[in-house]
């Protein structure tokens, strides 16, 4: 879906993304930094979850991090899952998920775009903004995932 370059996109959660306009490679994860304790949160938050301060500033998160830990989703997730096989068409494809630790000091739970046997604790990962599905109007809906920096591990 990397050929999408012009359109405005919908996203799975608008406050997670630095922009809703292409190209996708220019979009990063958005966050909030606390002016008192320095803790960084993904997306926008009404108060710092660590120190309760409301002195908050928007920030953009690094595109690269390190895999802290991971697991594999072996069965179709419950409810209205939109990934992989486009919600019910065709067989479910198992996928890895993991916590990716970013230099800002937070770990983000993410789908991992790599083979099931590829994840290793500590491996360098990079952000990938991708089209998760199209909504009923045909508009692409973006989400985030991480994949190994090392192309041989993809």
């Amino acid at each position: 879906m990397m050929n999408i370059t012009q359109a405005q996109f919908a996203t799975v959660r608008d406050d997670f993304f630095s922009s809703r306009e292409g190209p996708l490679a220019d979009i990063a994860l958005a966050g909030t930094v606390c002016g008192e304790c320095g803790e960084v949160s993904l997306g926008s938050v009404p108060a710092c979850p660590n120190c309760q301060s409301t002195a908050l500033t928007p920030t953009t998160l690094s595109r690269e991090g390190e895999l802290y830990s991971y697991t594999i989703v072996r069965n179709r997730p419950p409810g209205d899952y939109k990934g992989g096989d486009k919600a019910g068409e065709g067989p479910f494809v198992p996928f890895p998920v993991g916590l990716v630790e970013l230099p800002e000091g937070i770990r983000v739970l993410s789908v991992l775009d790599c083979p099931l046997d590829a994840p290793q604790v500590g491996m360098p990962m990079q952000l990938d903004i991708y089209e998760l599905y199209r909504d009923e109007t045909g508009q692409p809906v973006l989400s985030y995932r991480f994949r190994p920096v090392d192309e041989e591990a993809r």
Binding site: V12, V73, L99, V141, S143
Partner: peptide, 27 residues
């Protein structure tokens, strides 16, 4: 999953309850 998760977590497949335990186990 709607009892516990937001719609975007369900849509992306991050809504299986054992995931946090499994990730902590691996670590």
């Amino acid at each position: 999953p709607r009892q516990l998760y937001e719609d975007w977590q369900i849509a992306t497949g991050l809504s299986q309850n054992p995931i946090p335990w499994a990730i902590r186990a691996r670590r």
